[in-house]
């Protein structure tokens, strides 16, 4: 059997994610045919088994929106990789108005524009992440795949959401998973509960998918969402 093809494409992020992927390139080429701009030309017009999109989508850049739509059309599985692509990350704070293109105002996770199969937060995810993910997708099921699918449907995830949905909601049990999942050390344990240092949160979303409670809420919520959308399709809404 020939190896699956994988496209790695950055839409205008910091390039940290594609570079983190490049670090596992020696392993990645064993399981897939890799197409990336870092190592040569890429062709968005051909079809790929997997497309790994990094970086946020700038809603005000028609060029990038077109590219993203094209990638969606031409790929079997679309993976939003890294915090910007999956949940928005730091760039959600963008307010536009900057030279030389003040019209680039709004940035969003790519799932706001196209259907995404799996969304992986992390700023950036560790290189090994992609290898594990591809292996898991091949097996096709499991809690964590459900989770990354749920993130694609519900990209509003950040330290603030962790606080709102879990901690302030009284659902936190104090396991400490979140404090070990923050790249900027924005979470600290106070009296066995995490507390957010707001000025340190970069909205990468990592803590939320690592939280046993939040991950479960996400999965259940995405099931409801999917049910609702299939109902609305049936009834023609």
């Amino acid at each position: 059997m020939s190896k699956p093809t994988i496209l790695i494409y950055d839409l205008g992020g910091c390039e940290g994610c594609p570079l983190s992927i490049m670090r596992v390139y020696p392993q990645l080429i064993n399981i897939a045919d890799v197409y990336t701009k870092c190592l040569g030309k890429v062709d968005l017009d051909r079809e790929y088994d997997y497309a790994v999109v990094t970086g946020p989508i700038c809603i005000n850049s028609p060029k990038h929106v077109e590219e993203l739509k094209k990638i969606r059309k031409n790929s079997r599985v679309l993976i939003a990789y890294g915090s910007c692509a999956s949940v928005g990350g730091i760039i959600l704070y963008a307010r536009g108005g900057q030279e030389p293109r003040p019209e680039h105002r709004v940035y969003a996770p790519i799932s706001r524009v196209v259907r995404v199969d799996y969304a992986i937060p992390g700023c950036p995810p560790a290189p090994q992440m992609l290898i594990s993910l591809l292996n898991c997708i091949r097996r096709g099921k499991g809690y964590f795949l459900d989770l990354f699918r749920a993130v694609a449907l519900n990209p509003k995830l950040s330290g603030f959401d962790l606080m709102d949905e879990v901690v302030l909601n009284g659902l936190c049990v104090g396991c400490g998973a979140c404090v070990l999942s923050c790249p900027t050390n924005a979470l600290q344990m106070i009296d066995n509960r995490p507390d957010l240092i707001p000025e340190k949160c970069i909205r990468c979303g990592t803590c939320t998918v690592r939280c046993p409670r939040f991950s479960q809420i996400l999965i259940q919520r995405s099931r409801l969402l999917q049910k609702a959308s299939s109902l609305s399709r049936i009834s023609g809404v």
Binding site: I120, G122, P124, P127, Q128, L133, S181, P183, R210, P212
Partner: peptide, 13 residues
């Protein structure tokens, strides 16, 4: 659950 995720899906470097 957290440890399994860290081991299998390292979201952080």
């Amino acid at each position: 659950q957290f440890l399994r995720q860290v081991k299998m899906f390292p979201l952080m470097e």
